[in-house]
Design a protein around this nucleic acid. Sequence first.
DNA 1: ATAAGTGTTAACAACTTGTTAAACTTAATT
DNA 2: AATTAAGTTTAACAAGTTGTTAACACTTAT
Lengths: 225, 225
Amino acid sequence: MSTKILLVEDDPGLGFVIKDNLTHKQYDVTLCTDGEEAHRAFFDQSFDLCILDVMLPKKDGFSLAQSFRSKNKNVPILFVTAKGLIEDKITGFESGGDDYIVKPFSMEELYCRIEVFLRRTSIQEGATSFSIGSYQFDGNSISLSHDKGLKTLTQKEAEVLKLLYNNKDRVLKREEILKSIWGDDDYFMGRSLDVFISKLRKYLKYDPSIQIVNYHGVGFRLEIR
Amino acid sequence: MSTKILLVEDDPGLGFVIKDNLTHKQYDVTLCTDGEEAHRAFFDQSFDLCILDVMLPKKDGFSLAQSFRSKNKNVPILFVTAKGLIEDKITGFESGGDDYIVKPFSMEELYCRIEVFLRRTSIQEGATSFSIGSYQFDGNSISLSHDKGLKTLTQKEAEVLKLLYNNKDRVLKREEILKSIWGDDDYFMGRSLDVFISKLRKYLKYDPSIQIVNYHGVGFRLEIR
DNA sequence: ATAAGTGTTAACAACTTGTTAAACTTAATT
DNA sequence: AATTAAGTTTAACAAGTTGTTAACACTTAT
């Protein structure tokens, strides 16, 4: 299934060009030319990514984004802005995963941004329930079950475990984990992460084929043999 | 070690302001006011990112970028352009990882771009893997594998090996290696480098067609026959 | 022949990580 | 409003890893 993109752009010419280009790149693009139409589309369907022009006729991109968030806290939103009303608002909004692009931009640039953006968020998403060795993680009750018993994880324990699981094929840099879960990266957050790794190892100790391996000075990798 | 940025901007006032701002953000900025100076700096040291004004007195930003690429095919370059000569040329250049920013821009915006940019390239970098003779280097787990076994390298060992590999067609000056990996160049760092070369040779000894050759008084070159 | 540059090893200092426990924060309950 | 409880962060210390330095042997250039 292809990636669904909601594109909101009031200039019909530009909107068409962008949609056309992205469609050729195999994205499934829905184009809306005003805020209300976009609102309906968003609450009607589900999208992997939204591209919002900040300056729209009735409802501006920011308030639109705000209402999107009430349905889905995680949709990545890429704002399109003209020079001028840039950062103050954008950085203020900054719902974590969002990004922006300044007009005029090339299609190539837009395409790059989208790719980077989707990769970034897909890393975080991934499966919500999964089996890991002889354990079973249920993303709904955020609990780990095993013959030996069931342990309900805390929110953060679950986030760390999910992130590790969704990247079990590679080494996650400490910085990546911290930015992704703690939102920032300082010495104490780093120590906090170590505490969580320590806890997770304890929870997972009944299956020695599961190892959270440290790469000194780099980060961690979940290995399941 | 902080991120090294080469900033090329002919307007001394603007150049100073940008440098000053970025310096406060903990970047290590080298400012050049013309193309020739920039060229020297680039071939003398090594940078994590270049910010090039497109309109420069003698040599314009694009041809400068082209010559930068002859030394290093991977440096991310952020072009600064004035309104007008934007996309056609830029998209034409399109060396993959490059980006551009339109004047006038705010420091905040520049800062955002740099961050996104560096994050993008650092994610790609980590995954650098290559085969070297009968060895395989995995940039993710920073390990060297061979029939004879697997050796996980340290961060610095991996950095030195990667640098050598990426420049296997030429002699790397000691100074270049030191500035690039140690960030500076003094007697003891030089001795430290020798220790690392020694270690790498030991790790690579099972394939005699791989040689780290010393060029007396100059530097090293990785040769794979 | 001499001085400067390089190869190698090993000891030590600096830093990173693992772990436990105490301190703090927040939200719910009495 | 005070008490409890759960979750997270900070502190402390032990253990492990890495980078630098010093020392000495060897090589290259003058």
